[in-house]
Design a protein around this nucleic acid. Structure first.
Lengths: 341, 341
DNA sequence: GTGAAAGCGCTAACAG
DNA sequence: CTGTTAGCGCTTTCAC
């Protein structure tokens, strides 16, 4: 049997309550007693029993809030899915998880919800933030007040948040570049159809893509990135225009949405086999086009983990686990081909 | 607050004990009472509180045994790592996990350990089995006696084991084939350096590889597989021989060990850039060679999950969770390139 | 067949 | 500052 608080109490000649106060730094205890108790606990290799902890404190400490941006993108949906699964698991331990979605980058809404969380006694918050000074300050204040905060999706590095869980977009772009280089061994022209110039995620992907290709595959010419604003029709149109200028196009990289528009044009001109296509986001249309061979690779950075892992990390941490996550938790970059759908 | 047994008891006009007997099919209860209680529970959407369950039964129900083959391969080591991490987590819930390693395929040893587990009151067993009739019978008997069993690494399909957690080697081979096809767009000769003809895992990989290539990439010629018996020197030698016959070799697929021997020869003849190499097992030498560009892709099917997930699945199941795993749980096939090391 | 009661390891509220 | 006590939700005896 594992070592319990009672054993420590007996050895230290105090009561269980005192051990609790010592080990959890609750104050109201003589420092030397606390020291002694901590010593004994360490020597015995004491690990608090999570089940007991969860059960006793019940809904007191195991309250977690999740604030996501509201959007219908597959990524956010997947994050939400992960968060919901984690919610279920936490609630089976008697905890309580609230999930809220806000519109766009409305910081005021976020702050309102956070205040609500605090008043409701939430001890941990998972947050998909936008870059805002007021929000940063609030985060720091909450952390000082003993509330755990984890950022997901996009980070706020210079805050006291516990860690960040999300994608390494630069790395994602690099992988895409490496793959593109490999499947176009004889060199040629490659086009990038991005979303917009001010979406940091796609900009990073684009940078990574270009860096990898230009460094390791000099025989490939990368055209200036075009922007389709995540629109299928625009993306298709951009491709058509490009094909008129460079009918010998060899590859297309899409760090943003609009994939199925591009695939449609490729099919229209029967270029599926001739032009290599690498995209991100493993979902609906992309799966289909991957299967049919129109898309060659889909890169997937599992957004599910963003929702699931972040909540579970807070949960564990609230249970008294020291927390095993690094400051930056990047999702695995999984490459999907026709063969591992 | 979630619904508790007490609430059900109150509604049914019985005691908590009776509810427990009904919901867990412990017998000693009038069938119609049991029926009624189950009804109420379902209506209320009752979910037993895991923490409470773990706490109350304590070391009684949460005993799990893990039997691994003893071997110094990276795969087994990784499985072991996963199992150890799961052990830690389970024990933090007051459970008890034993991990044993046996030599090769010594079935007698396995049976001995299993008997020991049973006598020690283990309620779940994770088993890396060898194909043996006696073992199969034992598994079925244990399952009948209410002990959960999960097979990992290699399966014993026609038994009552709960599920299998491991690799889908055929799929792994197919992915390799697809990649090889993509990076050799102009066709050419491809060689397979396998382990031995009676290792089912590598045989399946080889089959998947050949199936994918011959179906989708007819311009590629696949040479008859050669066997290196997982030896670096032999593998290198086989390559050298092949190079004399077919100096225009375009690609090498290695479903088994011996990779670094092959890489050495490639470097010796300065063929790193000319011949594409795809291997499995993401570890030491392979990582290095991938980084240097000698190996183009490493396919990884995370063995860590075998150890971790299997134990956690049993744990959850013993906690009363219905269990969310399918009969076959295949690990993700992750493709590693120079860019996502 | 069923109910009552003790206890798992911990926290929290209240005495002292 | 410290000890005592009453639970958290469930299983497991032991009576009836």
């Amino acid at each position: 049997m594992a070592v319990t608080m009672q054993q420590i109490a007996d050895l230290a000649g105090v009561s269980r309550g005192t051990v609790d106060r010592a080990l959890n730094d609750r104050g109201r205890i003589r420092p030397e007693v606390a020291e002694k108790i901590k010593m004994i606990a360490k020597e015995l290799g004491y690990q608090p029993n999570i089940a007991a902890k969860a059960l006793s404190s019940g809904n007191q400490i195991l309250r977690i809030g999740v604030i996501l941006q509201y959007a219908d993108t597959p990524t956010i949906q997947t994050v939400l899915e992960g968060a919901k699964d984690a919610k279920q698991e936490v609630e089976r331990f008697g905890g309580r998880v609230m999930i809220d979605q806000i519109n766009g980058g409305d910081v005021r809404q976020v702050l309102d919800i956070m205040r609500g969380y605090k008043e409701a006694g939430m001890k941990g918050i998972v947050l998909m933030p936008s870059n805002d000074e007021m929000l940063k300050n609030t985060i720091d204040r909450y952390v000082d007040d003993g509330i755990e905060i984890i950022t997901i999706n996009s980070d706020l590095e210079d805050t006291k948040r516990r860690c960040f869980v999300g994608q390494d977009n630069y790395a994602g772009g690099r992988v895409a570049g490496g793959l593109m280089g490999e499947i176009i061994p004889d060199g040629g022209k490659v086009m990038i159809i991005s979303g917009s110039a001010d979406n940091t995620a796609t900009v990073k992907r684009t940078k990574g893509f270009m860096a990898e290709l230009s460094y390791h595959y000099p025989s490939i010419t990368i055209m200036e990135p075009r922007f389709a604003y995540d629109d299928n029709w625009v993306a298709g149109k951009l491709l058509e225009e490009q094909l008129e200028i460079t009918p010998d196009l060899k590859g297309i990289y899409m760090p943003a949405q609009g994939e199925s528009g591009v695939c449609k044009i490729l099919k229209k001109y029967e270029l599926e086999k001739k032009i290599k296509v690498i995209v991100h986001d493993y979902e609906g249309e992309n799966k289909k086009n991957l299967k049919e061979g129109v898309i060659n690779f889909v890169l997937r950075q599992d957004a599910y983990a963003q929702g699931y892992e972040s909540v579970m990390e807070i949960f564990h941490s609230l249970c008294g686990n020291p927390g095993h996550k690094e400051e930056f938790c990047y999702e695995d970059i999984v490459i999907k081909t026709r063969c591992n759908l």
